[in-house]
């Protein structure tokens, strides 16, 4: 209850995650009403600071803030502050002087929210920073899995794709293992990072380079977006090979149990990491993830700013 910021799930106890998920449930009820708005944050000003393009996450936070009756302002800038010749600290101080009560930040540099938190008087919510963390995404993943499967403890969750560059994977690792799930990270070694043998020593985590083996007995499979730049960086020989060996193809979909949830944090590269058949399969919860995202963000805004 006394938490000031939400920057990463690394230092959050299972109890607190549980509380957030319970609050999310209440927020979901609010979103199911005809009038999807409660006055809890009336008069508060939330600033969406987006230094990296992400229409989805920005809109999700915007809807969440509005459902709580907060004023929300979008501040969008591309590139790092240094490239623009404007310092992040200066931007934050300016927004504070303009009356911002809470900041939601998306930034291409890992750790940027910590810098903001040092110079802002109110709560800071991380909406994704570099490769580091994306706690609201991880929480909505936890909520969605639990909503469908009833629990998190003891589940086997396979995350397949670009682990090295993925803040979603990092936050999911913390959240899922904290709640007692087992996480299998599956990717070609280049996308696990040259140092992936460290990851294998983290409790509750195993590493695999073969998707078909990793999917044995999986309760959840989450595909991560593959960015085409990775090929130019030499990390992948071709998207074709990736898709055949690491993609959720119709053939793999057919072999999956019907109870295995299919997830994707979006935006999807259909035909690369996930086939259209898998994305729209009955056991796909990709749309539910998006819906639940608003409720989770309401819970975070409320708990930090209420």
């Amino acid at each position: 209850m006394s938490r000031r910021h939400m920057i990463d799930l690394d230092q959050i106890s299972a109890e607190e995650i549980e509380e957030i998920l319970v609050t999310t449930d209440s927020m979901k009820e609010v979103l199911s009403r005809e009038i999807k708005q409660v006055p809890a944050l009336r008069g508060r000003t939330v600033v969406n600071m987006f230094f990296e393009e992400s229409t989805r996450t920005r809109i999700s936070f915007e809807l969440a803030a509005r459902a709580l009756s907060a004023n929300i302002v979008n501040f969008t800038a591309r590139g790092s502050s240094v490239e623009k010749g404007e310092s992040l600290i200066d931007t934050v101080r300016t927004l504070q002087a303009l009356g911002a009560d809470m900041v939601v930040i998306r930034h291409s540099q890992s750790g940027a929210p910590y810098l903001v938190a040092q110079h802002f008087h109110g709560p800071v919510i991380n909406a994704g920073d570099g490769r580091h963390a994306h706690p609201s995404q991880a929480l909505l993943d936890l909520f969605t899995i639990r909503e469908r499967l009833g629990q998190l403890a003891g589940l086997k969750v396979v995350i397949v794709g670009d682990i090295l560059h993925s803040r979603v994977a990092r936050s999911d690792i913390w959240g899922l293992t904290r709640m007692g799930a087992h996480v299998t990270l599956c990717a070609p070694p280049t996308l696990l990072g040259p140092s992936h043998y460290w990851l294998a020593t983290w409790p509750g985590i195993s590493i695999s380079h073969r998707l078909d083996a990793a999917l044995e007995g999986a309760d959840v499979v989450m595909a991560l977006r593959i960015q085409k730049e990775r090929m130019q960086g030499g990390l992948l020989p071709s998207l074709r090979e990736y898709s055949r060996h690491y993609g959720l193809t119709p053939e793999r979909l057919a072999r999956l149990g019907e109870h295995t949830l299919i997830m994707h944090p979006g935006p999807m590269n259909e035909g690369v990491e996930i086939s259209p058949e898998a994305a729209t399969a009955p056991n796909s919860v990709i749309e539910a993830q998006v819906t639940n995202g608003v409720a989770v963000r309401m819970a975070l805004l409320y708990r930090l700013g209420g």
Binding site: S110, G111, D129, G130, R131, H132, R170
Partner: peptide, 13 residues
């Protein structure tokens, strides 16, 4: 430095 800490912090190592 590339290692467990850089992996945890998501910083290029």
């Amino acid at each position: 430095h590339e290692g467990a800490v850089s992996m945890r912090l998501g910083l290029p190592g």
